[in-house]
Design a protein around this nucleic acid. Structure first.
Length: 229
DNA sequence: TCATTAAATTGTT
DNA sequence: AACAATTTAATGA
C-alpha cells in the first residue's frame, strides 16, 4: 500500500489536458491563484443560485451535479470524475449557478478564480479550444441522455451512464476505477439501486467491468459505449 | 500490530 | 422495501 496515491494540487493542475498547452507564464499564474479545498462526503461543492466566481476541478473523489425539483425530489444530471473540470458555462455567461454540486466521496477540489479563467480565455487559443471541445462533448452527452431516458432499457442506460463519466473529458488519467456505490449508480442512471445492481451484474458477465466493494472497475470502455441489451 | 465493534455496502428475497 | 452477508473503518489494548 502506498501512503497517498492522490496527486498534489500542483500535479493535478499540470496533468490537466488544458494545462499542457499553456505558456510558462500562464501556468505560473494558474498555480499562483488556484487553491484547494477539502470537502467531505455528502458536502456541497457549490450551490444553485450562488454567484459563480470559480472554475472547479476535481483532484480526487467524485462529484455529482444535481437539482431538487419543487417537490423535493433530487434529479441527478451527471457525475464528474477526478481530472474533470466544470462550471465554465455559468462563468462564461456571467450568470448564477444553475445546479448544485455535491460530493459522493471525500473529495479534494481545485478552484480557479474567475479573473485567472478569463485571462486564459483571452490569451490562450488552445485553452479556448479546449473549452469549446468540452462544451461540445457535454452537449452530445446531454442529447444522449434524453435519448437514453426514453428509449433504452435499464441495462443499457447504466452502461452508457458509466461510459459518460469518462466521455466528457478525454481522460488522461488511465485510472478506470469509479469510486461510487451501486446506490449512486442508480441515481446517476435514473433507476433503482436493485435495478442498477442487476444491470452491473449483466455488464460484469459481458466482461465490460468488474464490481468491487464501493466501486467499479471499467475494463472495456468502448464496449460499454456500444452495449445494447 | 492485532482483535473487537460499528458502519457502510452489497446480494438476495 | 426489507433482510442477511460481506467489507471497510474505527477503537482500544
Amino acid at each position: 500500500m502506498k501512503p497517498d496515491e492522490s496527486p498534489s494540487l500542483k500535479e493535478a493542475i499540470r496533468s490537466a489536458i488544458w494545462a499542457q498547452t499553456l505558456t510558462a507564464e500562464q501556468l505560473a499564474l494558474v498555480e499562483a491563484t488556484t487553491f484547494e479545498v477539502f470537502i467531505p462526503k455528502g458536502g456541497f461543492v457549490c450551490h444553485k443560485g450562488e454567484v459563480v466566481d470559480n472554475w472547479i476541478g476535481i483532484i480526487s473523489g467524485m462529484v455529482k451535479m444535481n437539482n431538487f425539483s419543487p417537490s423535493g425530489k433530487s434529479v441527478t444530471f451527471t457525475g464528474v470524475p477526478p481530472g474533470g473540470w466544470f462550471g465554465e458555462g455559468s462563468l462564461l455567461k456571467d450568470e448564477r449557478r444553475r445546479y448544485d454540486a455535491m460530493t459522493l466521496r471525500d473529495s479534494r477540489i481545485a478552484r480557479m478564480p474567475a479573473p485567472t479563467f478569463h485571462h486564459l480565455l483571452e490569451n490562450s487559443l488552445p485553452f479556448t479550444r479546449f473549452l469549446l471541445m468540452q462544451l461540445n462533448e457535454r452537449l452530445g452527452q446531454f442529447i444522449g441522455m434524453v435519448e437514453n431516458e426514453r428509449l433504452l432499457d435499464p441495462d443499457t442506460r447504466v452502461a452508457r451512464c458509466l461510459a459518460s463519466l469518462f466521455n466528457s473529458h478525454l481522460y488522461p488519467g488511465i485510472e478506470r476505477l469509479v469510486q461510487i456505490s451501486q446506490e449512486e449508480v442508480g441515481l446517476l442512471s435514473g433507476s433503482s439501486r436493485q435495478r442498477a445492481n442487476q444491470a452491473l451484474q449483466v455488464l460484469e458477465k459481458e466482461g465490460l467491468l468488474r464490481v468491487d466493494y464501493g466501486g467499479i472497475r471499467i475494463l472495456d470502455l468502448e464496449g460499454l459505449r456500444r452495449f445494447e441489451a
